[in-house]
Nucleic acid binder design. Sequence first.
DNA 1: CTGAAAGCGCTTACAG
DNA 2: CTGAAAGCGCTTACAG
Lengths: 333, 333
Amino acid sequence: MSNIREVSRLAGVSTATVSRALRNPELVSKESQRKVMEAVERLNYRPNMLARNFRSERSYSIVILTPSIASPFYSRVTRGVELAAQNRGYSVLLGDTRDSLRREDEYIELVETRLADGIIQFRPSEENSEIARRANFPIVYACGCADTALPSVRIDNIEAARSIVNYFLSLGHRRIATICGQPENPHSIDRLVGYRRALQEADVTLDPELIVHADDYSMASGVKAGSRIARLNDLPTALFCMNDEIAIGAIQSLKRAGFSVPEDISVAGFDNIDFARHYDPPLTTIDQPSDEIGQIACNMLIDQIEGRPNSQNNVILDYDLIVRASSGTVRPD
Amino acid sequence: MSNIREVSRLAGVSTATVSRALRNPELVSKESQRKVMEAVERLNYRPNMLARNFRSERSYSIVILTPSIASPFYSRVTRGVELAAQNRGYSVLLGDTRDSLRREDEYIELVETRLADGIIQFRPSEENSEIARRANFPIVYACGCADTALPSVRIDNIEAARSIVNYFLSLGHRRIATICGQPENPHSIDRLVGYRRALQEADVTLDPELIVHADDYSMASGVKAGSRIARLNDLPTALFCMNDEIAIGAIQSLKRAGFSVPEDISVAGFDNIDFARHYDPPLTTIDQPSDEIGQIACNMLIDQIEGRPNSQNNVILDYDLIVRASSGTVRPD
DNA sequence: CTGAAAGCGCTTACAG
DNA sequence: CTGAAAGCGCTTACAG
């Protein structure tokens, strides 16, 4: 492997000039530039980025902390992050925390030991988070909930949930159930607020029996929760699930129990993952701008790392209500 | 940020001893070890990994080259890689190539500039690949096809495809269609060999009309290809799709065309993504040990990086045929 | 088991 | 616009 000294010798200039020609060509004469490039070419020189990073005290890497890289929704946000990072010359380190604080800690370690310049956190909660305690490094929360002192990019979960329930109400539904994630999950909390608010505004009495908590946001949990809905004495006419996986699992249970969607019960999800449009029936859901969330979060983080002033600290993006065949007007009794 | 010199001063030993105590405690006396640890504690010292990596000419990072991070199958393999990497003290850099050779090149750059120690390549083809040309660095092919001179971890795609078609044959099917990916895609090539072989062995004449090529491995392409199947004059009684996404899209088209699965036509996929079991009908498919593929590939790569002898160069893992409700005995004519 | 010292390959403040 | 030189924070061969 050739180094900068060999290049400087071959080009007949100093190593300083080589370094400048490579990183700040505007500081160097055309002639020097030409000689350096020629030498670089002839030696097939590649700069040792390990040295460069060490010298400049930057890793040019960021860490993504995701509860699961295999999540259809988060993996799309990740794609957005990766695209923006590559455009700005940064690499993305994958931090699959599997909801374990220990694993999360090991990734925070990367920033503390300089192997990463900052973190994008997908997990919506700051509570109990080592990050919150130690956050003296660049960080951006993506897909989170309420505004924090720390930078964030997200949609308004309360409003999005409210718009789904309002949509059900507009179809004549009054008995509207919901399947949340874990009670302490911030997404569940926010979306439940939206659910409650819409019903209150429509003067529909809340029936606690219609609020079911799933164990997590997986399809398997959706199946379990859905079968609880199916066993209710008086089946609700509509069901709002707090993500698409739960909705898919719930629909599977409802169908198995002999109900038709949407004839017996309308169902909606949240996120608009790729499968939503291909399910049977295709799923009514909230489309989150996942790619955009990722890109904006990444650019905000890199701005922070590079010390550029950020115009906004908490970015809230628009969502779309996507109506598909899993929902319809209330069945006549 | 404190450095090794401050630690050595506080501990009353040399920087060499601090370095040894931290990386090779067995080279250091118990007493020195204790003093160093105490100083580390008091200063809350974290080693600068940028310096360590530079010095040791290792990045302790590997790159994953994946056609799409958002693919349900590849993201599970990625999870396996990430788990094994973390266990061995390596980080994983995400390389979403989006099937672009230019983007792939930019990630190979990471190895050439020392920011990564090796590559795990998911794309099955070596053809036209910059990697194949330049491959003078540690690399492992995961989920690929035929054996290569380079290390690889995979299942036997030919056999897996053959076992699906044999299963259809055992149910009495004779008119068995298939939807492949692009004709030049190695997975398509191998699985088509298996399809042909099974039919030939059963003395079933190949009907070229029953071999349909999708534009890619997406659900949208499955929808398109499925509608071509649905328009055939004589509907096949079974359909083997070369991945689960295509199968899901195809089933959607078949249902829209008024056919029942499996009553009118049995359908099988490939990969056993999470959605397979939750689709309607649940999908018969080939289960690939995705997590294991990722973990083994990662360990092979790190062995290569660290210069450990590898017992095996081409690892072939077992697959499982998972029978679910999307397939059944041939319909009586 | 320990320390003094060289050096990894760059970047950059300084002087010209 | 350019070069000589210092130095980033470690690791490790060497000598003791």
